[in-house]
Structure formats: C-alpha cells, structure tokens
Amino acid sequence: MEFLRPRSVREALETFQKTPGALALAGGTDFMVGWNMGLLNGKTVVDLSRIAEWKGIEAGKTGVRIGSLVTHAELQRHPLIRREFPLLVEACALIGAIAIQNRGTIGGNIANASPAADTFPSLAVYEAVVHTASPQGRRAIPFLGIFAGPKKTHLRPGELIEAIEIPYARPRPSAAYFRKVGTRAAQALSKTVAAGLLWLSRGKTVAESRFALGSVAPTIRRARKAEDYLRGRKLTAETVGRAMDLVEAEIAPIDDVRSTAAYRFAVSKNLLKEFLECRPR
C-alpha cells in the first residue's frame, strides 16, 4: 500500500495525475472503516490532511466560504456559522459523537456521498456551491449537482473539493427546521434526515419554502414539487396535506438493515408536516 502526503493543492493535483485510481483521505472517519475491513489492501492513498489552504472559514459579503478540510467540530464552534447557518450547526452536532466530529470534514463528507449524510439536507436548503480544483482548472458546482448516486459523485478523476460556499439566507427565513431521525438518540446513522427553510409573507402566505430529505433516495432530495405547490399558498391542514402527498412522489426510499421503505415514506411526510407547522418538539 502506498501512502502519499502532498503539502499543497498543486502537489495534490499532480499526485493524482501521476497515480490514477488513488484514493483521497481527509479526516478518515469513514475511510478508515474501510481500512479496518481490509478493503484498502494494495490501494494507493493520498492524504490531503496537510493542505493548509483548505482549512479556513472566510466570511464574504454574500456568503461564507468553508475550506473542505474544516471539521464538523470547527463548524459548530464558529460564531458566523452559528449565526447564519444554524441548520448546518445542528446537523454537525449529530454526526456520530464528539470524537467523530473532531475528525470528520465537510469536504470529506461530500466526496463520500453517502445518501445518509447528515449535513446534506442543510447544505441543500442553504443552496451551497461546491468549489473544486483539477488539473483542468477550477469549477463551481451547485450542491445538488454533485451527486451521481449512493457513494458516487460527478467529480472527475483527480478533481478535488476545495471549498463549500454557502450564501447567506436573505431575507432571513421566518422559520428554520432540522431533524435527524436516526437509529438512536446519538452516535447514529440517519434513517431519514430533513432540513427546511420557510419564508412567510404577510397574511401567513408562503413566499418561499425549501425542504430537503436525506436517506430516502440514492442521493439527497429537494422536495421541489411540494415547494412549488406551497409558493403563494396559505398553510392550512389541506395545503400541508397536499404538500405531504407531493413529497411522497419525490422520494424513493428502500428497505435496508437500518429501516424500511414504508417507514421512511411515512416519516418523510411527517417531517414535512412538522416543519410546516413550525411545531417545537
């Protein structure tokens, strides 16, 4: 097994060019499980952890730029993130437990592309943009556009995630919602995970809503049909019920060792309802 440790972005890109098929290592919280299971025998591993450029959080005028190696613990502690992106903070606080949050990185989480990733619904409703670097140059990919399937992304060979940019939600939303329904209260993988932002205009009419669900389809899903339907409507038992029906058509959960499709359908709808009713738990 070869273990390569570039110190800069340029070195990292060159390393991948020289060793196609190499695997990228960031915080290791998922990666090392594979190592322990013997799945990495004979593979070349490129350790990105020494790339200092990817470790910062920068506040801009319209949003924040988070280096891909920023950990889930760092995100939770950062005052600007706490103020502007509480749904991301809530999600990070529920990834494994503290020892995992201290190591796992936002970029690693995205590259890993687990359908159950806890940060994804939050990043989806904040409409984050993923910045990448590759020998062919840099590009910016809308968050939802990066995923190709379970554990699969549209990143090209040798293309690496540099940063995640999240625009400030303006005007500030009337309500923000996050909930993870996991296998237990903590140190859990999600069975269904949801985030929502709601803007109400005067008269309790929905100006805009964004709702995203994880663990219920091969990739993270925004509930576009429900969002479109709700725009301009008042929230009543009837409109909420209709939105719940629309969500059902937008997800494709499966039975697996953690849960069942039937349960995930029901809970996804209930989560939307809880979000729209703005009901404190």
């Binding site: 437990a97 296998t183 209260a185 140190q187 060792v257």
Partner: peptide
C-alpha cells in the same frame, strides 16, 4: 447497525 443504547 446493531443498535445498543448510548448514554442518551
């Protein structure tokens, strides 16, 4: 995946 209770 075999879930035993945590402190919480």
């Amino acid at each position: 995946n075999y879930i035993i209770p945590t402190a919480l």
